[in-house]
């Protein structure tokens, strides 16, 4: 479970001075649910997700992940989370298997467990043909699969996805979307950011509309449509942000 409380993040920017990228963000995301963070470019999605996954420290407020606080025990939080973003890269000179094993070790898994989980996931995602090929030689779709295995190898209860489908073709996007559904169905708590409304409609159980660092509205997709009297999320989004 993810719970954020009055999360704020300020950046010092050379040109703009002090920028508040995240402004009192409070929401909750339950196990077995896909929670969507929906907002335009620069809304503060990435920053919020980075705080949740402990890459960044909040300026004020906090988030509690599966009972562990990001401010007081970031190390503890890291074990609870699997992280995947659209621009996550791979180590080109390592093979798919070596790369995955490296992260398994960083997550404190022992070698036999790493071996077992890797075989399981590589078979599930049909990756055995390129398991020992260097990452630099893989296609974008294959790379995406390696990233997926990397993020979920330690079987975390919480998954964080930051625009995971950006820049991918339909086929690769499909792999990711299916993977997110699998995570949800296995009872993980999934948070997912996107600026693509249709994707949010398809995938999210609940969404939060974020803009200029603030959460404008939160609820199921249906709630938002009913509340705004619109029949698609895009119009609802505009109405919420401008009205």
């Amino acid at each position: 479970m993810i719970e954020t409380k009055d999360l704020c993040k300020n950046f010092k920017d050379k040109k703009r001075g002090e920028v508040r990228a995240v402004d009192h963000v409070t929401f909750r995301c339950k196990p077995g649910e896909v929670f969507g963070l929906l907002g335009p470019n620069g809304a503060g999605k990435t920053t919020t997700l980075r705080i949740i996954s402990t890459a960044l420290k909040p300026s004020s407020g906090t988030a509690v992940i599966n009972g562990v606080d990001v401010v007081t025990d970031p190390q503890g939080v890291r074990r609870q989370i699997g992280f995947l973003s659209g621009n996550t890269g791979l180590y080109g000179r390592l093979t798919a298997k070596e790369m995955v094993a490296y992260f398994g070790r960083l997550y404190g898994m022992d070698e036999s467990k790493i071996e077992k989980r890797t075989n399981e996931l590589f078979t599930l995602l049909d990756m055995n043909t390129f398991a020992n090929v260097r990452n630099e030689k893989l296609s974008t779709g294959m790379k995406q699969k390696v990233s997926i295995v990397r993020s979920v190898l330690h079987d975390p209860p919480v998954m964080v996805f930051d625009e995971p489908t950006s820049g991918l073709d339909v086929m690769s996007s499909r792999t990711i979307v299916d993977f997110i559904k699998t995570c949800r169905d296995s009872g993980k708590c999934v948070i997912f950011s996107t600026h693509i409304m249709s994707e949010a409609m398809r995938l999210c159980d609940r969404v939060a509309i974020i803009h200029n660092g603030r959460i404008y509205r939160e609820g199921t997709v249906n709630d938002l449509l009913v509340q705004t009297g619109m029949n698609n999320l895009e119009d609802a989004f505009i109405k919420i942000v401008e009205g």
């Binding site: 890459a55 890291r78 973003s85 996550t88 890269g89 791979l90 960083l106 997550y107 990397r150």
Partner: peptide
């Protein structure tokens, strides 16, 4: 940074 692997390191449980 160039490869986009830095984030995956920072969220992994090594200090």
């Amino acid at each position: 940074k160039e490869r986009g692997t830095i984030e995956t390191l920072l969220v992994a449980p090594a200090t």
